[in-house]
Structure formats: structure tokens, C-alpha cells
């Protein structure tokens, strides 16, 4: 029933109307319809990351301690660049930034924060991982190598993800898509893929140089 008719008939029907609306909004099929497409994308990006990880078997064997970093790297990517996307979305909604690449102060500060956080947390992760491995008496390739791999992977994936989230968010906003609905999933799915590829590359570089 349209809301105008309900309102004309009085408040008693309004309660029924709201209840009906909630029942429809929270029906299992409507939740599934909203959730499943997104999860499907996540299935494929996650499996792709898994294929890269399986392909890294030799590097993982040659670089003990690297495996400890894998879940942390995957996670922090989603967190940092998901937050970056959600910040861009809020700023676009409030008119703080325009959906174009310019020397806007708010835009530059958001980008700088995303890049800097990606770099700093890569170093923090590697140092913590090395210390924990040391305390537990397990094998580690050493704080220097571990930090180098983590930093190369962090910076490379960070640069790619910053550009990717920026372009997708701006392009979506110009086409009338609410950035809040796309930046989160984009950051976590692209984050998985880019982070694993960057880690693979960083491990190959370090193995090649050493």
C-alpha cells in the first residue's frame, strides 16, 4: 500500500505499514539477494589469491617466517584501503572533495594517509612477526629481509590499491553510484588479489637479489 493512503487512514494502519515494511526488508530472500552477489565476487578473488599463494610454495619454503605475515598483510590491506574508500565516500557526500584528480588539500591528505599507513604498518608487522618468531624459538629469515619483503609488498600493493579505489570511487560517483556501497567490497577483494601478487613479487625480488 502506498504511504499516502496509509497516512490518510490514520495512525493505527501506520503501525501495520511499518511492520509490513520491516518484514519485507528483513525477509530471508531479500537479505540473500543483497548479500550473495557480493560474496560471489569474494569467492573468486579469494580463490585467485589462493592460487597465487599455492604458486608461492617454493618461496615460502625458502623464506621461513614469510608465511606468518600472509594473513596480516591480507587483513591490513582491506582495513586501510576500505577506510580510505569510506573516507572518500563521506567527503564526496559532504562536498568536501570533487570527483576529479586535483591539488585539493583534503584529497591529498587522504591519499597521503592511506599510503603512509600502508608503509608504516608493513614495517610494524614484519618487526612484530620476527620478534614473536624469535621468542617462540622458530626459524625466521631475519628482521632485515622480512621487513624488506613486507615493505616492498606493502608499498607496491598500496600504490595500486590507492589508485584503484580512487578511480572506482570517483567513476562510480560520477555515474550516480553511492561510493559507500562499492568502496568497501572493492577494497577488500582487490586488496586480496593485489596483496598476494605484490607479496609474490617481493619474495621473488628478495630471493633473486640474495
Amino acid at each position: 500500500m502506498p504511504i499516502d493512503e496509509v497516512l490518510e487512514e490514520g495512525t493505527e494502519n501506520l503501525k501495520e505499514y511499518v511492520e509490513e515494511y520491516i518484514e519485507e526488508y528483513a525477509s530471508i530472500s531479500s537479505i540473500l539477494k543483497q548479500v550473495l552477489p557480493l560474496l560471489l565476487i569474494c569467492v573468486f578473488s579469494g580463490l585467485f589469491a589462493g592460487i597465487v599463494l599455492t604458486g608461492m610454495e617454493a618461496s615460502l619454503k625458502a623464506l621461513p617466517g614469510l608465511l606468518v605475515l600472509v594473513p596480516a598483510i591480507l587483513d591490513t590491506r582491506g582495513n586501510i584501503y576500505g577506510a580510505f574508500g569510506s573516507r572518500l565516500g563521506s567527503a564526496l557526500h559532504q562536498g568536501m572533495i570533487q570527483p576529479e584528480l586535483n591539488k585539493d588539500k583534503n584529497l591529498i591528505h587522504s591519499i597521503a594517509a592511506a599510503l603512509a599507513l600502508g608503509g608504516i604498518i608493513s614495517i610494524v608487522m614484519a618487526v612484530i612477526a620476527h620478534c614473536v618468531l624469535l621468542v617462540l624459538g622458530r626459524e625466521s629469515i631475519g628482521i632485515l629481509l622480512l621487513t624488506m619483503i613486507s615493505l616492498i609488498a606493502g608499498v607496491a600493493s598500496g600504490l595500486l590499491l590507492t589508485m584503484f579505489v580512487l578511480v572506482i570511487t570517483f567513476a562510480g560517483y560520477r555515474r550516480g553510484i553511492d561510493p559507500d556501497n562499492i568502496s568497501g567490497p572493492v577494497a577488500t577483494t582487490a586488496g586480496d588479489v593485489f596483496a598476494m601478487l605484490a607479496l609474490f613479487m617481493a619474495a621473488e625480488i628478495v630471493l633473486g637479489v640474495w
Partner: peptide
Amino acid sequence: YNVFKIMKTALPLLTLCSLFGIAAG
């Protein structure tokens, strides 16, 4: 938006997240 303010709020939470990640690792 200020780069230092954003980092000040985000870093503690991110460090905590990486601790859990390292535990999984």
C-alpha cells in the same frame, strides 16, 4: 582531513588487527 590525525586514529587499531593476523600466521 589531516594526514597526521587520520594516522593517529588508524595506527593503534591497525596494529591490533595485525597482531591477530600474525596469530593466524
